[in-house]
Design a protein around this nucleic acid. Structure first.
Lengths: 227, 227
DNA sequence: CGCTTTTTGTGATTCCATTCACATCAATTC
DNA sequence: GAATTGATGTGAATGGAATCACAAAAAGCG
């Protein structure tokens, strides 16, 4: 249980998700095949990038014929283990945890939150279909549903403690919404999602942009004055 | 309003946030100064990286003396405009929107959700202190509070339409929770947060890890059989 | 005060992701 | 069925971020 763990999700994987979302949309529209440049312009990358990414994940198309959307989506499902169900547990039923437990998009991608956990006995009852258990039943549920991945939405103060327990019971991957860097052994995958940072990043760039625009305007003004 | 916009938040900026969180913690513990390697080991990066990042954002310390925590935090506040309040609007009061509107950590970082909006008239009443308005009052609120940044938590079907409206009324940056790539002009900053993708990434790496471990075990078994 | 120690700050280097360029293959046309 | 066209797939080149290595500065010490 040593070592700080940063999120290390590859950009190429994120782009693959983009492509998939785009493909699903095209499929709904009745489109049957795409070319790398179609997908590229839809997702705002270059066609080289699309092909290189596909190459990395061993996805191939037909020379000249482009890619068959159904085949592509099937291949992706296989790669991302979407064919089998993935059972998830969610720890912490505060505001965020509650919202995540109701988030219907997980289910649509075969990711099932089979149970949620909270230390607050008041919260330990059925809510919106998904049961809320006390932490004492964690091991039982993880074993019964072969859970390997957890969502962590507990206060930062208890995050590390909960993580240690999760890992002790066999959890191998965690999406962590608590704003702390968790210490885990390197075989456990952590993906940190820090909502404050996401918002603050945008604020930073907006302020910067405004400053740049301001300077541009000044330059323009200066030029106008000069001539 | 052309062009697909991917999130482009620099890694160095994300690390600066990490450092700041760490510094705040150290400050609470009564620590007054740090060295680059202290901060590094606390955040799981190298000390070179810390110094390089600081250099990028023009943060400097004292040769041999390290960095004064208070000075560092002040400098960061200035860089990130934490001295002045940042007013935010939140669009979409579904499960996620509701949770975000109650997310107390925003306020602690001077990011105030001044109002929320939803098309559902049933939701348009005071909830947990923050008012829920109809979209018709968007412009009024944006102007009154000089809002430049919005959080988007609407269904994907209406996301683009809402974004167009936001930008028309002067919004310059958006944290987008809808799983769609928004089309905006390049002077608007978009930060996409896709919860499904975050979870699915972890699942992907966990399966991969298990496969790798499995192979390792096979190799071990093979070696055992051989000798 | 000059010598040693310690840590910063940054040019040089390495490494990895993206982009380029083109060989390769499949379809279509003549 | 050869020639042409239009796409893929991938080595090679490029660019940008992380790491290295060291000069410069500050603190301590004799």
């Amino acid at each position: 249980m040593n070592g700080i763990t940063k999120s290390v999700i590859k950009n190429s994987l994120k782009r693959i998700f983009l492509y998939r979302a785009c493909l699903a949309r095209l499929k709904l529209m009745g489109v049957e095949k795409v070319f790398s440049y179609t997908l590229a312009s839809e997702t705002g990358v270059t066609s080289d990038q699309v092909r290189k990414d596909f190459s990395e994940y061993n996805i191939r198309g037909n020379k000249r014929g482009g890619y068959d959307i159904n085949g592509l989506l099937e291949k992706m499902e296989k790669i991302f283990h979407r064919n089998k169900d993935n059972n998830i547990v969610l720890i912490g039923m505060g505001n965020l945890g509650l919202a995540l437990s109701k988030y219907s998009k997980f289910v649509r991608r075969n990711m099932n939150v089979v149970a949620t956990f909270d230390i607050d006995p008041f919260k330990q009852k059925m809510r919106s279909g998904i049961p809320v258990y006390s932490m004492s039943r964690l091991k039982e549920i993880i074993d019964r549903f072969s859970v390997k991945v957890a969502i962590l939405a507990v206060p930062e103060i208890s995050a590390q403690e909960v993580v240690d327990e999760l890992i002790r019971h066999g959890i191998k991957g965690i999406v962590n919404f608590a704003p702390v860097l968790l210490k885990v052994s390197p075989d456990v995958i952590i993906n940190n999602v820090n909502l404050c940072d996401e918002l603050e990043s945008v604020i930073y760039y907006v302020h910067k942009q405004i400053k740049v625009d301001g300077l541009k305007n000044l330059e323009l003004l200066y030029r106008d004055m000069k001539y």
